[in-house]
Structure formats: C-alpha cells, structure tokens
Nucleic acid binder design. Structure first.
Length: 467
RNA sequence: GAGGCUGUAGCUCAGUUGGUUAGAGCAUCAGAUUGUGGUUCUGAGGGUCGAGGGUUCGAGACCCUUCAGCCUCCCCA
C-alpha cells in the first residue's frame, strides 16, 4: 500500500498546534470585538469571474480553479464546444465557465466586497467586519508560504475618515503587543507612490516603479536602477528618489514628513498622500495616548504592496527581530472603490490582514507561546473493570459536573498500561476508583506531577483538583 | 515560469573507490513489573532503499528519465 500524503503546501495540525493557533485566533477575535467589529463568513468557493482580474496578472495565475462537475454528461454539441475551449486552455492562460465556473477564495477582501454589494440593503454603514478563514493560492510553497493558509481580516467600509486607518493601526499594535511579537509597521500611501512617479516623469509607470522600489532593502539602489532600466524607465529622473531617500533615513516620522513635503511640492497627489499619513498618525497618537504600547511605526515611501486595488494609505507589518527571518506577517490599506467592481459605486473601505500562519511560525521561533495553551483533559479516571468500572463512570461524571476536564480509560487494561497512557498524555491527576476505595465511597487521588497519592472522598478530590 | 538541494523502517538519519543477509537512535509492541507512570534492562515486529529504465559478474551507491518534498528567484501573508 502506498503511503498516504496531503497536497503540496497543505498541512495537518496536531492538537498542540491547533491549541496554539486557537490562542492566536482568540487573541485577535477579542481585540476585533473590543473595537466593535462584527464577524462574517463567506464560502470557500466563489464564482471564478468574481475573482479574476482583481489581483493582477500574477494573482490570476495563482487562483485555484475548481473543475466543473458533470462534464461527461453533456450533449455531443456542448462537448464539441468544450473540447475547443479545453484546447485554448492548453495553449495559453485562459478560463471559461464551461469548464471552470468556480474557484477557491484567494483572499478575504474581494469576497467581502462581493458580500457588501449583495448585502448592501441590510447592512448599516459604516460597517466594521472581521473574518477569519482559510484562503488558497496555487503558489510554489516554501518557507512561510503555504497553498492553504488562514487570514484574519478587519475592514471598515463606508467611511473615508482616517480615524479608521488609525484604529486599524491600533489593532495591529494591540494584537502584536499581546502576542509578544516585536513588529515594525511600515506606513505609506499609494498617492505618495503616484507622486513619486509624477516627479520622475513616468506617471503611467506607477506599478513598475513601485515594484522595483519595493525591493530596495533586498537588492540595494543599484539593483533597483537595474530593474527600472529593464522596465524601460529612464533612470535619470529616478535619481530624484535617491535624494529623497537619503534625506529621510533619519529622524522621527514627523521630521521626515516635513522633509518629504518639501520634496513633493511639485505633486499635488503626493502632498495629499503625505497629508493622509500625517493625519493618520495624529489620530493614532490620540487613540494610544497613555497606553502601554510601543508600536514601531515607520513611514517608508518604498513600501509598495502587491494588490493593485489600494488607493490611499497602505501598511505592512514585518517582524522586528534579528532572530527571525520572515516576510510580511500582515498588510492592508485603503481601497476607494472596491465595491465598484461589482456595481456599488462610491463606497470606500480600509482594511488590514493578519497572516496567522506566518505569525504562528514567528511566535514558534521566538518561543512566545504561553505554556498553558497546550492543555487537554486534566484528569484520568482509571478503569479496573467489573463493578469498579461502573463506579469509575460515576466518578468521571461527578468530576465533569464540577467543571473538571476528565476522561475515563475506556478499557479495563492492565494497570501499568493505563498509567503509561496517563504519563504520555500529561494528565495532572489520576483518580483510582478501585474495590477498596469503592467500599469506603472514596477514591485514591494521585498527583501525577509530584507522584503523591491520598485516599479522599470525591468532594475532597474535586477540591484538590480545582485548587 | 527559472534555478539549486534531498528522497533508505512510523520519525530523524548512517551506509566506505560499486561487493555476501541494508544499519543506528527515537517511536511502537511484548516481557522483567497482573493496583502504580517517567528511569533502566531484555526481546520482537517493522524496508519492493521514491518509481521506471540503463551500465556492470554484481547497484542503496554510477548514468538517464520521471515523480515527490524542501529551498532560492519571481510574487506574496
């Protein structure tokens, strides 16, 4: 028999892993709720047309498509058409509802936009929603990259106020503070990037410029210039960016903003972007005044963000620790007209996403999971068979009524086997309801950490266990 | 889509310029120990050496093909 396996880039989770993941989910959920966000869920599958064209060319390629059912049951006439369509799919990137009508969710933002359009009449705006569900991408898996992974998104839709941006920054700060992950939150605006493109005389090359610029810390300035040349962007104007960067490496966010404003006098769009960043920071500091958060927020005009529906402030979170090498663990931004893609115009939204699988990996490497999150049943009731078995069932029920996590060993196996099981599973206590104990209506309670044992009533046992 | 590395027991891995019956640790099961776990000791089970082909008297090892996994680039959470 061949060994079983799971698809590339997917994972099983053991009980200990699920508990640690739930610790992250729980932390985020509490914060989202505290900030007034409400949960929604959407299907794992969307209609393919809902997703295509929303994530750029590369994104389209990475959408997991679902093959239609019943392809064999079509009439000959339909089959002839499908064969032609299939031939096209073999030749170039192409998809058709005749063969793949549905696809797995690629992120949580586009499905949310679709949700908003469909539920616009029964949703009060501004609407704050959070969503924690898996997404799928047909990417090549590698470190920190999976084909199935979970996102936790919080979005505010139906308000253009920058208070929303500031609150989302608060949520980031609060969440990573509670999870004990040191982070740097990079802040930028699509309008600043557009301004840069204007100043460099290539307003139509915004995407190419930003993608190259985004790699600055990886490939250096020379690498960026190289990249730009390959994309047919005249390098001489771009030198301007280098000057700006040189003058904004130091100082706090406010002094840097002032320097940037001087550089951007020629670009109304750029100045608008800087003003947004400035106001966002202002609101953020009002919201966090006196709080014990140490958010490391950094204006970074090289931050690009891949998703091309962003229009305003954009943000990205990276782990700020020498111990951990990991890409971004969260990101987000404002999208002025996302629902417009589905026919609902004039509704602006802003959102952030937590990449919880990467956050998990980072927390594992940092060793910041609380030890008590890995907790299973607390008490094992041994099984001596016969009359004692009935007594054991009575005992385990009494323990559960007292709110104690307890399980009874289901077979009257050899005693040492039951003890080894208890040891391996890490119970705190083992209750021994043997014949001697039953006669006295008592149990032997063994503390499995210390090894000590005493003969007590059930009430006494409950008191000791819950102490 | 491009490149690199690795596939040997359930897991982590040894395996000499190609040489007789492929090993270890961990894990599992049994016993030492039938109402007392962790430690220890003894024993057992477990392998088409990823798959297919080739070279050779002889291949786990060398060559080709293929599949899978990991990593890097691209891109992203």
């Amino acid at each position: 028999m061949s060994k079983p396996s799971i698809p590339q880039g997917t994972r099983d989770f053991t009980p200990a892993e699920v508990r640690r993941r739930q610790y992250i989910f729980g932390t985020l959920r509490r914060i989202f709720e505290l900030y007034g966000f409400e949960p929604i869920e959407t299907p794992a599958m969307e209609n393919l047309v809902t997703l295509t064209g929303k994530y750029g060319e590369e994104g389209d390629r990475l959408i997991f498509k679902v093959l239609n059912n019943g392809l064999h049951a079509q009439s000959d006439e339909v089959k002839g058409k499908m064969t032609a369509e299939w031939q096209k799919m073999l030749e170039k990137p192409y998809s058709t509802p005749a063969i793949t009508e549905r696809a797995l969710r690629y992120d949580l933002t586009i499905p949310f936009a679709r949700y908003m359009v469909m539920h616009q009449n029964d949703t009060a705006l501004p609407f704050r929603r959070y969503q924690m569900q898996p997404v799928w991408r047909a990417d090549r898996p590698q470190k920190g990259r999976y084909r199935e992974f979970w996102q936790c998104d919080a979005d505010v839709i139906g308000s253009t106020s920058l208070i929303n941006e500031a609150e989302l920054l608060c949520i980031y700060s609060e969440a990573f503070h509670q999870l004990q992950v040191p982070v740097k939150i990079k802040l930028n605006s699509r309008k600043v990037l557009a301004g840069l493109a204007e100043l460099c005389g290539v307003p139509d090359k915004l995407t190419e410029l930003t993608i190259a610029l985004d790699k600055l810390d990886k490939i250096g300035w020379d690498g960026v210039l190289n990249e730009l040349q390959q994309r047919n962007i005249p390098v001489e104007h771009v030198q301007r960016i280098s000057d700006i960067l040189d003058n904004t490496q130091t100082g706090n966010n406010y002094t840097r903003l002032n320097v940037l404003k001087d550089f951007f006098v020629g670009s109304a769009t750029g100045l608008e972007g800087l003003e947004e960043i400035s106001k966002t920071l202002h609101y953020f500091h009002s919201l966090t005044a006196g709080k014990d958060l140490k958010p490391n927020i950094d204006i970074d005009i090289t931050l690009a963000r891949g998703l091309n529906y962003y229009t305003g402030v954009i943000v990205e979170v990276v782990c700020d620790s020498d111990k951990v090498k990991m890409g971004s663990i969260g990101g987000g931004g404002r999208y002025d007209d996302l629902t417009g893609l589905f026919g609902l115009k004039g509704v602006s939204g802003v959102g952030v996403s937590f990449g919880i699988d990467r956050i998990y990996d980072v927390m594992e490497e940092l060793g910041v999971f609380p030890t008590n999150v890995v907790q299973s049943a607390n008490v094992l009731v041994a099984n001596f068979g016969g009359e004692e078995e009935t007594y054991a069932l009575h005992i385990v029920q009494r323990l559960r009524e007292a709110g104690i996590c307890a399980e009874v060993y289901p077979d009257a196996s050899k005693f040492d086997k039951q003890m080894k099981f208890a040891n391996k599973k890490g119970f705190s206590f083992v209750v021994l309801p043997g014949s001697e104990e039953r006669k006295e209506k008592k149990v032997s309670l063994k503390n499995f950490v210390s090894g000590s044992q005493s003969l007590v009533t059930i009430e006494e046992a409950i008191a000791v266990i819950t102490a």
